[in-house]
């Protein structure tokens, strides 16, 4: 009898009500998650993005944007292609034709996709803009990036688009797009100075690098806070309890379960 009571308590405990997180938006990191062992699809692939957007409760996706040698924006996370495609090169050093011939090292043999082919159908997106061509040690042309983002915006006019960069020199030119502009600060960087100088009101932080108090302080100043590197259920709970604006989760389903 005692064990049955414990079992009943267990069931009741399972049904206990959670805190309210309605105001927090959940986005899939690099589609449906970055470096997830149980992921059906590769990060930043078309199927991965579609799967994240398909899940009820997922408000959008974050994707990584890099320009090819021909100036077309492609979605790819790493600086070098070798680990994911076996080709030792960078997106910025290859032509579109060369990138089109590549596939991810994944059993689904997925292709890399262009930013302009991304269909959000009203859901939101964070475009993580990569400024560096590490193969040639050069900075990518921001004006060409702006052209590509404009093209993407025209095709996804109903979606809210956040732009993110960790390169201060890009903040001023990117403001011409009049989209939500975010910045990934390095450690000990003064956010107030960035807000005052560049008018940026959105910042990205790793979950372990920001406290609940800091999120609250920044939100009180009118800044939006996006938290990433949120993977395990424990990490997701910790991120939710900081009440940021957006969480970029590597496990979208687990994040939905925790939020709702």
């Amino acid at each position: 009898m005692r064990f049955r009571i414990i079992f009943l308590l267990f069931v009741i405990f399972s049904c206990s009500k959670k805190e309210k997180y309605e105001a927090i938006q959940l986005f899939g990191h690099a589609g449906n998650g970055l470096n997830i062992s149980n992921s059906v699809y590769h990060d930043n692939s078309e199927n991965s993005i579609k799967l994240a957007l398909a899940q009820n409760g997922c408000d959008g996706v974050e994707v990584d944007v890099q320009l090819s040698k021909d100036g077309i924006a492609w979605l790819f996370h790493d600086q070098n292609l070798e680990k994911e495609t076996n080709l030792n090169s960078c997106i910025n050093s290859l032509s579109d034709e060369e990138i089109e011939s590549l596939s991810y090292n994944h059993f689904n043999d997925e292709k890399l996709i262009k930013l302009k082919d991304l269909q959000l159908k009203g859901k939101s997106v964070v475009l993580d803009l990569r400024h560096s061509n590490s193969c040639e040690n050069k900075v990518v042309d921001v004006n060409q990036m702006i052209v590509e983002i404009e093209l993407f915006r025209q095709k996804n006019s109903e979606s809210e688009i956040y732009l993110n960069t960790n390169y201060l020199a890009w903040l001023t030119p990117l403001q011409s797009l009049n989209l939500k502009l975010c910045y990934s600060p390095s450690e000990n960087e003064n956010l107030d100075e960035i807000v005052n100088t560049y008018g940026v009101k959105c910042f990205l932080f790793k979950n372990q690098e920001i406290t609940k108090e800091r999120v609250e302080t920044e939100k009180n100043k009118g800044n939006e806070i996006i938290i990433f590197e949120v993977r395990s259920p424990k990490g997701i709970r910790s991120a939710l309890n900081k009440y940021p604006t957006i969480i970029l989760s590597d496990d979208v389903k687990a994040a939905i379960v925790e939020k709702f």
């Binding site: 059906v40 957007l53 398909a54 899940q55 009820n56 059993f107």
Partner: peptide, 18 residues
């Protein structure tokens, strides 16, 4: 396999994996 109904695509989705 995983299956669920997606409101976003207004259809049931079916995913297959190893």
């Amino acid at each position: 396999s995983e299956s669920f109904h997606s409101d976003f695509y207004s259809k049931n989705l079916f995913l297959l994996d190893f």
